[in-house]
Design a protein around this nucleic acid. Structure first.
Lengths: 329, 329
DNA sequence: AACATATATGTAACCGTTTACACATTTAAG
DNA sequence: CTTAAATGTGTAAACGGTTACATATATGTT
C-alpha cells in the first residue's frame, strides 16, 4: 500500500504539503503542486479513506436501510438514492431490515461504528427510539414522520384517487385489500380509500392482509374470491397483491375489466407488462430516492431546509384493468 | 462519542486491557473482565470500526458491485450475498455499475480506499484488468471466469434445455432472442440453444438484442412479430424480454401456448404471476448470491478451496407458456 | 527602510483502536 | 526452595491521514 509518506518522500516535501495539495487547501506553490501530483501519478497513490475518516470523524459513507430489496418497489428507491449520492461523492452502506427491530438496530450500529455521515431508512418499525438519540442525520423514506426529515408519497390521496376512479368507472361491490398494519403507507392508502367509499353509497368490504410477499398474495387472492365472489372492483394494497388478484381472477375465468376492475398501488416496473396491464396508483419511487438523498446531503452540509417533510404526488395510471370512463356520465 | 479510553478510565484499567476484554485475546483476569464489561454496558460503548480498520488494514466490509439493482434478477443475488455476509459479521458496500467501465473502476477504488476485505462483482465488463492487480480477493458472480473464483449458473445447459423443451413440445418455427453481446451469460444461453437447434431439423431465426431494459424489450417484441409473424416458439434471452414478447403476442391476439410457446430465462419472482404464467429456465439467484458470499468468506479466511469455480444447475420451470408434452410421442 | 501581510513549508499532535514489549505476580515443577 | 512457565496488566508505538502551530521567505505599503 502506498501512503502519503511515500508520496512526500518521492516529491521531496513533507506529508503536510502533500495533504494540502490533495485537499486543495492552505498555501502551496504551483511548482510544488506539480511535483507532488507527478509523484501521486507515478506511485498511483490514492488516499486511504479510513484514515481520513478516523481523523475527521466523518466518512463519505451513507447508510441505507430498506425493508427488503427483493420487494420490487425498493430497487427503484435504492437506485434513486445511489445515483444522487454518487454525484455528491458519497457511497452506500446497505442493509435489509426485514422490518425486524433487532436487525434494524444492528445495522444502525454498524452505520455508526463506520462513521457514516447520514442514514436513509425506509423501515416501518415501531422502534423509532432507535433513532431518537442518534447524533447522525437521518432521513426517512417511504414513511411519514412529523419529527424527522422524511420523503414519502401522498398515500392517503392515492387511496382517495383509487377509490374515486374505480367508482367513476362503475364498480358497485368493491373490496379493499388493507395492507399490513405496521406499514404506515399501507394504512394511509387504506384510509384514503375508506374515506371516499364510506361517503359514497357503494357497497364495500375490507379484507386485511398481513404481508406483501408473493406467496401470501396468492392466498389472499383466493380467499377474496371465495369470500366475496360477487366483488366487481378491487383496491389492492400494492401491485404485488393486485397482480395476484388479477392472476386468480383470470384463472377463475373472470373477464377483466368488464366483470372486475382492479387498481394496484406503486406502479412497479412489471405492472405495465402484465396482461391485461395493471391500472395503478403510481408512486415516483426513483424520484423519492433522489429526493431523500438530496435532503440528506443538504442536512449534512448544514444548508437551510425549507421543508423537513417532502411529500411527492401520486398519479393514477389508467391501464387495462379498469374500464374507460364514461364521458357522457 | 465514547471511546475505549472512557471505558478504561471508568473501569480503572488501561486501554490495552479493555481491548483484550473486547477481543477476547491475551490474558485477562475474570474480575477485571467483569469490571470492564460493566463499564462497557454502562457507557453503552461500542468500538469504532474505523480505528480498528485503520490499524488492522482490514475492515468488516465487503464490496458488492452489480450491473443494476433495478433489473429484477439482481435483488435476489444481492439478498443472497447480504444474508450470508451478515452471518459472518460482514457488511455490504454497494454499487451499481451500469456495465460502465468508468463507474466500475470508480467503485473498485472506493472499495479499496475503504479497506474492504473482499469484493463480489457481477459486472460483465471487458475491463478485467481492473481486477488484475487487486490485492483484495474477488469473487465473480453470474459471470464465468477461469482465472478468478466465480459463481454462476450453467447458462449453456440452460440454453440447451430450453431448446429441447420447446422442440419436444412441438414448435416448428422458432426465434431465438440473443441477448447483449457483452453479457457473457446471455451468450452462453444462446450458444446452448443454438447447439440444439442447429443439430435438429427445425427452422429457426436469431434476433439480436442489445439490452435487458423493460422499455427496449417491448420494441424487440414488436419487431419480432413484424419480422417473423409465423414464429410459433420464442426462446427469450431472459424473463423480462419473455414478458414483453408474451405481452405483445397477447395484444396481437395470439393464443398461448397453442399458437405460440415462450420460454424465458432466470425465473424472476414475477414470472409466476404473469397470465399465462411464464415457462422459464430457472437460475437459483438467491443461492448463487449465498454461494458467492460463502466462497469469498472462505478465501478471506484462507481456507482451502476445492473449487474455484462454482457452477450451479439450472432447471426448466414448466408453466403455462409452453404446452404439456405429449407423453405418447 | 520598516513593518505588516501574504505565501510556502515543515513538525508534531491527534483521531480510536490494536499489539509488541516490558514488567510484576502467581502457579507449577523439580 | 528455587526456577521456569503461566497469568495479568500497563506503556507506548503503530495504522495513514489532517491540521494547529511555528517558522521562513516574499511581497506590499507607508
Amino acid at each position: 500500500m502506498v501512503t502519503i509518506r511515500d508520496v512526500a518522500k518521492k516529491s521531496g516535501v513533507s506529508v503536510a504539503t502533500v495533504s494540502r495539495v490533495l485537499n486543495a487547501n492552505g498555501y502551496v506553490h504551483e511548482d510544488t503542486r506539480k511535483k507532488v501530483m507527478a509523484a501521486v501519478d507515478e506511485l498511483k497513490y490514492s488516499p486511504n479513506e479510513v484514515a481520513r475518516s478516523l481523523y475527521k470523524k466523518k466518512s463519505k459513507l451513507v447508510g441505507l436501510l430498506l425493508p427488503d430489496i427483493t420487494n420490487p418497489f425498493f430497487p427503484q428507491l435504492a437506485r434513486g438514492v445511489e445515483d444522487e449520492m454518487q454525484k455528491g461523492g458519497y457511497r452506500i452502506l446497505f442493509g435489509n431490515s426485514d422490518e425486524n427491530a433487532e436487525k434494524e438496530l444492528d445495522y444502525l450500529n454498524t452505520f455508526i461504528q463506520n462513521n457514516v455521515v447520514g442514514i436513509i431508512s425506509a423501515t416501518n418499525n415501531k422502534a423509532k427510539n432507535n433513532y431518537r438519540d442518534l447524533s447522525i442525520p437521518v432521513v426517512f423514506l417511504d414513511r411519514t414522520s412529523t419529527d424527522y426529515p422524511s420523503v414519502y408519497a401522498d398515500g392517503k390521496e392515492g387511496g382517495r384517487i383509487a377509490a374515486e376512479e374505480i367508482v367513476k368507472r362503475g364498480s358497485k361491490r368493491i373490496t379493499i385489500l388493507k395492507g399490513p398494519a405496521h406499514i404506515q403507507p399501507a394504512q394511509d392508502r387504506f384510509q384514503g380509500a375508506l374515506e371516499v367509499l364510506s361517503q359514497s353509497n357503494i357497497d364495500f368490504h375490507v379484507m386485511s392482509t398481513t404481508s406483501f410477499a408473493f406467496e401470501d398474495a396468492e392466498k389472499w387472492a383466493k380467499e377474496l374470491f371465495a369470500t366475496y365472489p360477487d366483488t366487481d372492483g378491487v383496491l389492492a394494497s400494492n401491485d404485488i397483491v393486485a397482480t395476484a388478484v388479477l392472476h386468480e381472477a383470470l384463472r377463475l375465468g373472470k373477464s377483466i375489466p368488464v366483470e372486475l376492475q382492479i387498481i394496484g398501488f406503486d406502479d412497479i416496473p412489471q405492472s405495465s407488462l402484465l396482461f391485461p396491464s395493471l391500472s395503478t396508483i403510481r408512486q415516483p419511487a426513483y424520484e423519492m430516492g433522489k429526493e431523500a438523498a438530496q435532503l440528506l446531503v443538504k442536512i449534512i452540509n448544514q444548508e437551510k431546509i425549507h421543508q423537513q417533510q417532502v411529500q411527492l404526488p401520486v398519479t393514477f395510471i389508467d391501464r387495462n384493468t379498469t374500464r374507460k370512463v364514461d364521458t357522457n356520465g
